[in-house]
């Protein structure tokens, strides 16, 4: 079939091309079309005037970004620190959680713990933040009320706006929300371990910790490694829906990430060219990182994300 002429082969598949057409056009208009708008980072663009009429600015706005380097470095530091800490803490805890869950003999108890721990993944950030307010707010949060009743503290701790608590807050809320999700992947790897290994180990007199140390843990390390690498591909990105709620005037210096920075300068202060320049720098860095990560995982595993 592949020996036929190209035109014949294309004609042969005309129905398939027609089926792909809606998706193709939507992607063209909604994803590729606006990429032309990236030109605004290189021009003095003002709203209400067509972009192609805007005066060329060259790298002026990129120079502004470098001029504001202290601010930019702060945003870069926040984004990287919170993402990298979330990945490391999240995957490590999930690894040990799934190993422990696997040691539970009773299938029903195991199922209950797994189902409950997976639930937060499906809750929106609004609900998560709402719950955090109920538990952590300085005045009425029940953790603060509890600590004050015990006499441990005199005034409520400002968990949600203290700049020094921003990173733990983000890392722990991510851990809470993602634990069950990451555990699913580890548990499926555990399910793939040859049970004969455990039987042989038992006959040799291995106890629970021996089995974990010499069978389960080594079997999970490749999965851990791959997940670590894949997750690192996204360290420049952040969830807008999370940070829109988490960021406030008090914790901004340690909480603001690229998405919120672009939102603040672009949508609130209407500094379109500047915000787009920041966005381009972020996207390019992220894209290069993703390609590197994809190459590494390809080499390690023989298959890639894509």
């Amino acid at each position: 079939m592949s020996k036929q002429h190209l035109t014949k082969r294309i004609a042969r598949y005309k129905i398939i091309y027609l089926m792909m057409l809606p998706g193709f056009l939507l992607t063209l208009v909604l994803a590729y079309f606006p990429m032309g708008g990236l030109y605004m980072a290189f021009s003095y663009f003002r709203i209400g005037r067509p972009l192609f009429e805007a005066e060329f600015a060259g790298l002026t706005f990129f120079r502004y970004v470098i001029r504001d380097s202290t601010l930019m470095l702060e945003v870069l530091r926040n984004t990287l620190a919170m993402n990298i800490l979330s990945i490391l803490v999240g995957l490590t805890v999930a690894l040990f959680f799934s190993i422990m869950l696997n040691e539970v003999g009773n299938r029903h108890i195991k199922k209950i713990i797994q189902s409950v721990s997976f639930m937060p993944f499906f809750l929106s950030w609004v609900i998560v933040y709402n719950i955090m307010q109920v538990f952590l707010s300085a005045g009425t949060g029940i953790i603060n009320v509890f600590l004050m009743d015990l006499g441990v503290i005199d005034h409520g701790i400002m968990f949600l706006s203290d700049p020094s608590l921003s990173w733990p807050l983000v890392v722990l809320s991510n851990l809470w929300r993602m634990l069950g999700y990451n555990a699913v992947i580890f548990l499926s790897s555990i399910a793939g371990i040859d049970t004969g290994l455990y039987e042989a180990a038992n006959i040799d007199g291995a106890d629970r910790l021996h089995r974990i140390r010499y069978i389960t843990l080594p079997a999970l390390l490749p999965t851990f490694q791959i997940l670590l690498i894949l997750n690192f591909g996204w360290v420049f990105s952040s969830n807008f829906e999370q940070f829109f709620l988490f960021t406030n005037a008090m914790n901004r210096p340690t909480m603001e990430v690229f998405d919120m920075f672009i939102f603040r300068f672009g949508m609130r202060q209407l500094n379109f060219s500047y915000a787009t320049a920041v966005g381009i720098l972020r996207s390019v860095a992220g894209f290069i990182l993703l390609i590197i990560v994809n190459q590494i995982s390809k080499r390690m595993e023989g298959s890639s994300v894509a």
Binding site: F24, F33, P34, G37, I262, M267, F272, G279
Partner: peptide, 21 residues
């Protein structure tokens, strides 16, 4: 076609150009 769609997962025009479109 495969890459045409996949690319949009890795690279987007960003908030403001998308908003204006």
């Amino acid at each position: 076609f495969n890459w045409y769609f996949l690319f949009t997962m890795y690279f987007s025009a960003g908030l403001i150009p998308t908003f204006l479109l």
